[in-house]
Amino acid sequence: VTLFVALYDYEARTEDDLSFHKGEKFQILNSSEGDWWEARSLTTGETGYIPSNYAAPV
């Protein structure tokens, strides 16, 4: 399992994006889409796309 942590807060701009807060942890589901990764929040259980430059490996 690849775990990442949010470096900044992010507010979803589309219904496919995932809103999150700094410090929140994610499981990365798909990182082959370039700058946007499909991720599941370990806090909320929700799935959506996150900007890859807002996350770092745990």
Rank of each mutant, 00 (worst) to 15 (best):
V1T: 13
V1F: 15
V1N: 13
V1P: 12
V1H: 13
V1Y: 14
V1W: 14
V1Q: 13
V1C: 15
T2L: 13
T2K: 12
T2D: 11
T2C: 14
L3W: 11
L3R: 05
L3E: 08
F4G: 03
F4S: 03
F4L: 07
F4W: 15
F4Q: 02
F4R: 03
F4I: 06
F4Y: 15
V5M: 08
V5L: 07
V5E: 09
V5S: 04
A6F: 02
A6M: 06
A6H: 01
A6Y: 01
L7E: 03
L7C: 09
L7V: 06
L7N: 03
L7Q: 05
Y8M: 09
Y8G: 05
Y8E: 07
Y8T: 06
Y8F: 12
Y8L: 08
D9N: 08
D9C: 10
D9P: 06
D9G: 06
D9V: 05
D9L: 04
Y10T: 00
Y10W: 10
Y10M: 02
E11F: 10
E11M: 11
E11K: 11
E11A: 10
E11C: 13
E11P: 04
E11H: 10
A12M: 03
A12G: 12
A12R: 08
A12L: 02
A12P: 05
A12D: 01
R13W: 07
R13E: 10
R13V: 13
T14P: 01
E15A: 14
E15G: 14
E15W: 09
E15N: 12
D16L: 14
D16V: 13
D16C: 15
D17H: 15
D17P: 01
D17F: 15
D17C: 15
D17Y: 14
D17L: 09
L18W: 05
L18Q: 01
L18C: 01
L18H: 02
L18I: 10
S19T: 10
S19I: 02
S19D: 03
S19Q: 04
S19F: 03
F20W: 01
F20I: 05
F20D: 00
F20C: 03
F20L: 05
H21F: 13
H21Q: 12
H21D: 06
K22R: 11
K22W: 04
K22Q: 09
K22G: 03
K22L: 06
G23E: 03
G23R: 02
G23M: 02
G23Q: 02
E24I: 04
K25R: 12
K25I: 15
K25H: 13
K25F: 15
K25V: 15
K25E: 09
F26A: 00
F26N: 00
F26M: 06
F26W: 02
F26Y: 01
Q27F: 14
Q27G: 02
Q27R: 08
I28C: 05
I28G: 00
I28D: 00
I28Q: 01
I28V: 09
I28P: 02
L29H: 05
L29D: 04
L29F: 08
L29V: 08
L29I: 12
N30A: 09
N30D: 12
N30L: 06
N30Q: 09
N30S: 11
N30R: 09
N30K: 09
S31Q: 14
S31M: 15
S31A: 13
S32P: 11
S32H: 11
S32M: 13
S32I: 11
S32D: 11
E33M: 14
E33T: 12
E33Y: 11
E33R: 15
E33G: 14
E33S: 14
G34H: 11
G34A: 13
G34E: 12
G34V: 11
G34R: 12
G34L: 11
G34S: 13
D35P: 10
D35H: 10
D35C: 14
D35R: 08
D35Y: 13
W36P: 04
W36Y: 12
W36K: 11
W36F: 10
W36D: 02
W36E: 03
W37K: 02
W37P: 00
W37H: 03
W37E: 00
W37V: 07
E38T: 12
E38Q: 13
E38S: 09
E38Y: 15
E38R: 13
E38M: 15
E38L: 15
A39K: 00
A39T: 03
A39Q: 00
R40E: 05
R40Y: 11
R40G: 00
R40A: 04
R40L: 12
S41P: 00
S41Y: 03
S41R: 13
S41N: 13
L42S: 04
L42W: 07
L42H: 05
L42T: 06
L42R: 02
L42V: 09
T43K: 13
T43A: 11
T43I: 09
T43C: 13
T44M: 02
T44V: 01
G45R: 04
G45F: 08
G45C: 09
G45M: 07
E46L: 15
E46F: 11
E46M: 14
E46C: 14
E46S: 09
E46P: 01
T47H: 08
T47G: 03
G48Q: 01
G48K: 03
G48S: 01
G48A: 03
Y49V: 07
Y49D: 01
Y49T: 07
I50H: 00
I50W: 00
I50M: 04
I50F: 04
I50P: 01
I50Y: 02
P51C: 10
P51V: 02
P51M: 06
P51N: 09
P51T: 02
S52C: 10
S52D: 02
N53T: 11
N53Y: 12
N53F: 12
N53H: 13
N53G: 14
N53L: 09
Y54S: 15
Y54A: 14
Y54R: 04
Y54K: 04
Y54T: 04
Y54F: 11
Y54N: 02
A55M: 15
A55Y: 04
A55C: 15
A55N: 02
A56L: 08
A56I: 13
A56N: 06
A56V: 14
A56T: 09
P57G: 05
P57M: 08
P57F: 06
P57I: 08
P57T: 05
P57H: 06
P57Q: 08
V58R: 03
V58L: 14
V58S: 07
